[in-house]
Amino acid sequence: PQEEYKKRAKKALKKGDEDTAREALKRAGLSPDQAEEFIRRFL
């Protein structure tokens, strides 16, 4: 589910792994723009 992928993305970002985070967010159904926004907000 979407929440699970978002959790995964946050874990990846904590490790500084933005590529894995983007992949997880893409799987969560976010557009690339939404994924970038999510990452920017998190960092």
Rank of each mutant, 00 (worst) to 15 (best):
D33K: 11
A24N: 13
K7A: 13
G29D: 03
F38V: 04
K6Q: 09
T20M: 09
K10D: 05
R41G: 07
K15F: 10
L43F: 12
R27V: 07
E37M: 07
Q34G: 05
R27D: 09
R41N: 11
G16D: 04
L43H: 10
P32M: 10
L13R: 02
A21Y: 02
S31K: 06
P32K: 10
E4Q: 09
K26R: 14
R40M: 08
L30T: 01
E36Q: 07
F42V: 09
R8Y: 11
A24W: 15
Q2N: 11
S31V: 03
P32I: 11
S31Q: 06
K7S: 10
L43W: 12
I39N: 00
A24Q: 13
K6I: 15
K11H: 12
R41E: 11
L43Y: 15
A35R: 06
Q2W: 13
K11S: 13
Q34V: 05
E4I: 09
R41I: 10
E37H: 06
T20E: 13
R40H: 09
A12G: 02
D19S: 12
A24M: 15
T20W: 06
Y5V: 04
K7G: 06
E36G: 04
I39T: 01
G29L: 04
K26S: 11
A9Q: 01
K26E: 09
R8K: 13
D17G: 03
K11F: 06
D19Q: 13
F42I: 08
R27Q: 14
Y5D: 06
D19W: 11
R22H: 05
A24T: 08
F42W: 12
F42S: 05
R27C: 12
T20N: 07
L43E: 06
G29I: 00
L30Y: 11
K10Q: 13
K10P: 01
A12F: 06
R22A: 04
D19K: 14
T20L: 10
R40W: 10
D33P: 07
P32T: 10
E36F: 05
E23N: 07
Q34C: 09
I39A: 01
E36H: 05
A24C: 14
P1H: 13
E3H: 09
A35G: 03
K10C: 14
